[in-house]
Amino acid sequence: MEDQIQTLRVRQAVLRYVTTRRTGTAGIARVNRLARLPAEQRRQPVAELVAEATHALDMEPAFAAHLRSMLPDLLDDPSVEQLDAWLELAHLIGDPDFREGVREAFERHATDRSSGPPDTATAGHDQRYAPETRSGARGPPAPRRTRPPRTDL
């Protein structure tokens, strides 16, 4: 009985999606396939992305465990917006540029971790984006002095 209720909920979610998004046959098939997958199979592509992006990197163990614990899941009775988000996520995961960007972000994390603890004076401030800090300037530049407007004209 529970399986039948779940099947009806999935069908209802797909129908809500189709009626509000006016998607074609291919879109209907995609969302229907996604919604019918068991939760473990829906999470698998995200888990594979995280595993691929962090492979052979010196990751802080607690951070890596936190990543694995936060894998997203689609609810049993998803809203139209949740189905939209899952379709977008599926699209992103399949994009090689996105995957490369995720890998680069984790590589930066591993590099930062290996360079030691952050300097407490600049913690939270990325010096690459603060050129005035590198030049020794303190604060914004002083406004330029201009001549007062002439009043004798």
Score class of each variant (00 low, 15 high):
R16C: 04
V10D: 00
R134V: 12
G94M: 05
P72A: 11
M59C: 08
R33K: 15
T54F: 04
R36M: 10
G27H: 00
A123G: 06
T19Y: 02
A53G: 08
R36P: 04
E48H: 05
D76I: 02
Q44M: 13
M70R: 14
A29N: 11
F106M: 06
F63T: 11
V80Y: 01
R43C: 07
E132A: 15
L8D: 10
A90N: 13
L75T: 15
E40I: 03
P96R: 07
D77E: 15
T151K: 06
G94N: 07
E132C: 08
F98R: 09
R36Y: 01
L34Y: 01
R128S: 01
H55W: 11
T20E: 15
E100D: 09
L71G: 00
E81I: 10
E81P: 04
E107G: 09
D95E: 10
A39W: 12
D73W: 06
A85G: 10
P78A: 05
T25S: 11
D97T: 13
R22Y: 01
L71T: 02
D76K: 02
D84A: 12
G124M: 02
P78H: 00
R147V: 08
S115I: 01
G24T: 04
Y129Q: 14
A90I: 06
M1F: 07
A51F: 01
G139M: 01
D126T: 03
T122K: 10
